[in-house]
Amino acid sequence: MSIAELLKQRTSIRAFTDQPVDAATVRALLDDARWAPSGGNLQPWKVLAGAGGGGQAVQRLAVETLLRNPGGEAGEYPIYPANLGEPYRSRRFKVGEDLYALLGIPREDKPGRMRQLARNYQFFGAPVGLFFVIDRQMGHGQWAHLGMFMQSVALLAEERGLSTCMQEAWGMLRQSLHRHFELAEHELLYCGMALGYADRSAAINQLRSERAPLEEFAQLRGFD
């Protein structure tokens, strides 16, 4: 499969089967992904991978934390900017509405929407959860390089018949996860990623978010 095909095929999967993913497969994915671009060769990433009991412990932590504080833990790096402007606000609103429409959960069903949101903290049923960590001294450039590494993991998973969902929702629990993983003071947990085999029968996995046309974001200058 070509890289272009992998890019178009990859999507955020929010329902997985219980088929396990073994340690050798996870190790191979990460071993290949380490060749992702890295400015100055800093390689500013660290990965924590959990399966079975390890993953369940994190899920229990999430439930306990959110029961105490349903709004999550306030952090220095919010998932979205405050007062998000256009066209970004409308894009975010639409993909959310499309997702809940597939599930048959209307806007007024707040408990139903909260239950679906809570599935983030179960890795949507995936057998493996990955967490990505960066050193606090790193700047915006290195955060971009971490994103390239994560994209590489996702595409390599797709190539092997696996699926992923990148989950910034775990950023709502940074303080608790920092303590749970006993991270060093200079380490910052960025986000998580669900990894496993997609449940192709699940309605939610039919969601395909729209993309802006090329003319909306690209300018080609100086070409004949």
Score class of each variant (00 low, 15 high):
56 Q>V: 12
53 G>L: 15
48 L>V: 13
67 L>Y: 09
100 Y>G: 04
53 G>D: 15
68 R>N: 10
75 G>L: 02
90 S>Y: 02
110 K>N: 07
80 Y>E: 09
73 E>A: 03
116 Q>I: 09
62 A>D: 01
74 A>G: 10
65 T>V: 06
48 L>A: 05
53 G>S: 15
111 P>T: 03
82 A>F: 06
91 R>E: 14
65 T>L: 04
49 A>C: 13
92 R>S: 10
109 D>C: 03
113 R>Y: 11
82 A>D: 15
73 E>L: 05
99 L>T: 04
50 G>P: 01
83 N>Y: 08
50 G>Y: 00
110 K>C: 06
97 E>G: 04
95 V>E: 05
74 A>V: 10
114 M>C: 09
94 K>H: 08
70 P>A: 14
78 P>Q: 02
57 A>Q: 14
51 A>R: 08
76 E>K: 10
55 G>E: 04
71 G>Q: 06
108 E>A: 13
72 G>V: 00
80 Y>I: 07
116 Q>M: 12
109 D>H: 04
78 P>S: 03
63 V>A: 11
79 I>F: 02
71 G>L: 03
112 G>E: 10
113 R>K: 15
62 A>C: 15
64 E>Y: 06
77 Y>G: 06
102 L>A: 11
62 A>R: 00
65 T>R: 05
92 R>W: 12
93 F>H: 15
74 A>K: 07
85 G>A: 12
